[in-house]
């Protein structure tokens, strides 16, 4: 009886359907367990990164993809936004903080896949600290009339960071202006 069922023409279809069904159920269960953990971690990561730029941060609000950062007394101490550009080895995600005068408060590279030892040096503070206090017009490599020194041997990575920040920052400034 069982052998006859195995040789049925529809059996392969039934078998594959069962396998896929079991797989789907299993994945739904695992995803339900892990997705809150992933979500919580992401929030933590954003707060941690914002803290690096704004040590006095108490809480933040996300509006129009811009983080409004509030201090301990509840006053607004700045804004932050994420920018992403494509570097030499993949996408570079950058978090940029602005003070209330729209000058850069700090820059932090969230993720990158640049060449270790060369392009990956964009994460070092000797590079990111250069952005501090700059307004949008100064954000360009020195060769392009700006105030940022490119990393030796990593012009593509440096330029990716600079232009990603500049492009996204002008959008963010527009949004902030219009919402005033």
């Amino acid at each position: 009886m069982f052998k006859k069922f195995l040789s049925n023409k529809a059996y392969p279809i039934i078998f594959l359907t069962i396998i896929v069904a079991i797989s789907v159920i299993l994945l739904v269960v695992v995803n339900n367990i892990t997705s809150p953990v992933v979500e919580a971690r992401r929030m933590e990561e954003i707060t941690g990164n914002l803290e690096k730029i704004f040590p006095d941060i108490d809480k933040y609000e996300l509006k129009d993809e811009i983080y409004f950062v509030y201090g301990k007394d509840g006053e607004k101490i700045g804004y932050a936004f994420t920018a992403s550009g494509s570097g030499y080895g993949g996408v570079i995600d950058i978090l940029v903080g602005l003070n209330s005068n729209f000058e850069i408060e700090g820059v932090s590279i969230i993720s990158q896949t640049e060449t270790p030892g060369v392009g990956a040096r964009i994460t070092e503070s000797s590079f990111t600290d250069q952005f501090k206090g700059l307004t949008i017009n100064d954000i360009a490599l020195k060769s392009g009339g700006g105030k940022i020194d490119a990393i030796t041997g990593a012009t593509i990575s440096s330029n990716a960071v600079v232009s990603a920040i500049r492009d996204r920052m002008s959008e963010v400034l527009d949004t902030l202006e219009s919402s005033k």
């Binding site: 797989s23 299993l26 994945l27 695992v30 995803n31 367990i33 892990t34 997705s35 953990v37 992933v38 971690r41 990561e45």
Partner: peptide, 15 residues
């Protein structure tokens, strides 16, 4: 299925 489970678990616990 195993790879997706692995990927989900690693993303959650070893990001």
């Amino acid at each position: 299925t195993f790879v997706t489970i692995l990927s989900l678990v690693i993303e959650a616990y070893v990001p």
